[in-house]
Measured scan of single mutants.
Amino acid sequence: HDTTVHINGLRIEVHGASEEILKWIEEAARRGVEAEEIKRWVEEALK
């Protein structure tokens, strides 16, 4: 999927993410993980 995830006011563009990654992002956000940190993880995961 190409999608934009909104976390604590930060937009994260996610290209080619699976449902699993999207669920993981939402879970991390709920746990209060910094949005910048999530963004870094997602970029690494999608390389």
Score class of each variant (00 low, 15 high):
residue 1 H to N: 13
residue 1 H to T: 13
residue 1 H to K: 14
residue 1 H to A: 13
residue 1 H to M: 14
residue 2 D to L: 15
residue 2 D to C: 14
residue 2 D to R: 07
residue 2 D to K: 13
residue 2 D to M: 15
residue 2 D to A: 15
residue 2 D to Y: 14
residue 2 D to S: 15
residue 2 D to E: 13
residue 3 T to Q: 13
residue 3 T to C: 05
residue 3 T to A: 13
residue 3 T to N: 12
residue 3 T to D: 12
residue 4 T to V: 15
residue 4 T to D: 07
residue 4 T to C: 14
residue 5 V to F: 08
residue 5 V to I: 15
residue 5 V to T: 05
residue 5 V to E: 04
residue 5 V to A: 04
residue 6 H to G: 04
residue 6 H to E: 15
residue 6 H to C: 10
residue 6 H to P: 03
residue 6 H to L: 14
residue 6 H to N: 15
residue 7 I to M: 06
residue 7 I to F: 06
residue 7 I to G: 03
residue 7 I to E: 04
residue 7 I to T: 03
residue 8 N to W: 00
residue 8 N to Q: 10
residue 8 N to P: 05
residue 8 N to Y: 01
residue 9 G to A: 03
residue 9 G to S: 04
residue 9 G to L: 02
residue 10 L to M: 10
residue 10 L to H: 08
residue 10 L to K: 02
residue 10 L to Q: 07
residue 10 L to D: 06
residue 10 L to V: 15
residue 10 L to F: 09
residue 10 L to P: 01
residue 10 L to W: 04
residue 11 R to C: 11
residue 11 R to N: 12
residue 11 R to D: 12
residue 11 R to A: 15
residue 11 R to Y: 12
residue 11 R to E: 14
residue 11 R to H: 14
residue 12 I to H: 02
residue 12 I to D: 02
residue 12 I to K: 01
residue 12 I to G: 01
residue 13 E to S: 06
residue 13 E to H: 06
residue 13 E to N: 12
residue 13 E to A: 03
residue 13 E to R: 02
residue 13 E to F: 06
residue 14 V to L: 13
residue 14 V to W: 09
residue 14 V to F: 12
residue 14 V to R: 01
residue 14 V to A: 05
residue 15 H to W: 15
residue 15 H to S: 13
residue 15 H to P: 13
residue 16 G to F: 07
residue 16 G to I: 06
residue 16 G to S: 07
residue 16 G to D: 07
residue 16 G to M: 08
residue 17 A to L: 13
residue 17 A to V: 10
residue 17 A to F: 07
residue 17 A to M: 09
residue 17 A to D: 03
residue 18 S to R: 05
residue 18 S to V: 08
residue 18 S to M: 07
residue 18 S to A: 06
residue 18 S to K: 05
residue 18 S to E: 02
residue 18 S to C: 04
residue 19 E to V: 12
residue 19 E to H: 12
residue 19 E to C: 04
residue 19 E to N: 10
residue 19 E to T: 11
residue 19 E to W: 13
residue 19 E to L: 13
residue 20 E to R: 08
residue 20 E to C: 06
residue 20 E to L: 09
residue 20 E to V: 10
residue 21 I to H: 02
residue 21 I to S: 01
residue 21 I to C: 04
residue 22 L to W: 09
residue 22 L to G: 01
residue 22 L to F: 07
residue 22 L to C: 09
residue 23 K to L: 11
residue 23 K to P: 00
residue 23 K to S: 10
residue 23 K to R: 13
residue 23 K to C: 05
residue 24 W to H: 02
residue 24 W to C: 04
residue 24 W to P: 00
residue 24 W to G: 01
residue 25 I to H: 00
residue 25 I to G: 00
residue 25 I to K: 00
residue 25 I to R: 00
residue 25 I to S: 01
residue 26 E to H: 10
residue 26 E to Y: 15
residue 26 E to P: 00
residue 26 E to A: 09
residue 26 E to T: 09
residue 27 E to D: 15
residue 27 E to N: 06
residue 27 E to I: 03
residue 27 E to G: 02
residue 27 E to V: 03
residue 28 A to P: 00
residue 28 A to T: 01
residue 29 A to D: 07
residue 29 A to W: 14
residue 29 A to Q: 13
residue 30 R to E: 15
residue 30 R to F: 11
residue 30 R to M: 14
residue 30 R to V: 13
residue 30 R to C: 05
residue 31 R to K: 13
residue 31 R to D: 15
residue 31 R to F: 10
residue 31 R to Q: 14
residue 32 G to Q: 03
residue 32 G to F: 03
residue 32 G to K: 02
residue 33 V to K: 03
residue 33 V to L: 12
residue 33 V to W: 12
residue 34 E to T: 14
residue 34 E to G: 13
residue 34 E to C: 09
residue 34 E to A: 15
residue 34 E to Y: 07
residue 35 A to N: 05
residue 35 A to V: 11
residue 35 A to C: 08
residue 35 A to S: 06
residue 35 A to W: 13
residue 35 A to H: 06
residue 35 A to D: 06
residue 36 E to N: 10
residue 36 E to S: 11
residue 36 E to T: 11
residue 36 E to C: 06
residue 36 E to I: 10
residue 36 E to V: 09
residue 37 E to L: 11
residue 37 E to D: 12
residue 37 E to I: 11
residue 37 E to A: 09
residue 38 I to Q: 00
residue 38 I to T: 00
residue 38 I to P: 00
residue 38 I to G: 00
residue 38 I to D: 00
residue 39 K to R: 12
residue 39 K to S: 08
residue 39 K to Y: 11
residue 39 K to Q: 11
residue 39 K to L: 13
residue 39 K to P: 01
residue 40 R to M: 09
residue 40 R to H: 08
residue 41 W to Y: 14
residue 41 W to N: 02
residue 41 W to A: 06
residue 41 W to I: 10
residue 41 W to E: 02
residue 42 V to S: 00
residue 42 V to E: 00
residue 42 V to H: 00
residue 43 E to P: 00
residue 43 E to C: 03
residue 43 E to G: 06
residue 43 E to I: 12
residue 44 E to C: 04
residue 44 E to A: 13
residue 44 E to I: 09
residue 44 E to M: 11
residue 44 E to R: 07
residue 44 E to Y: 10
residue 45 A to M: 13
residue 45 A to R: 07
residue 45 A to F: 11
residue 45 A to Y: 14
residue 45 A to I: 10
residue 45 A to V: 11
residue 45 A to S: 06
residue 46 L to W: 06
residue 46 L to G: 02
residue 47 K to S: 11
residue 47 K to P: 02
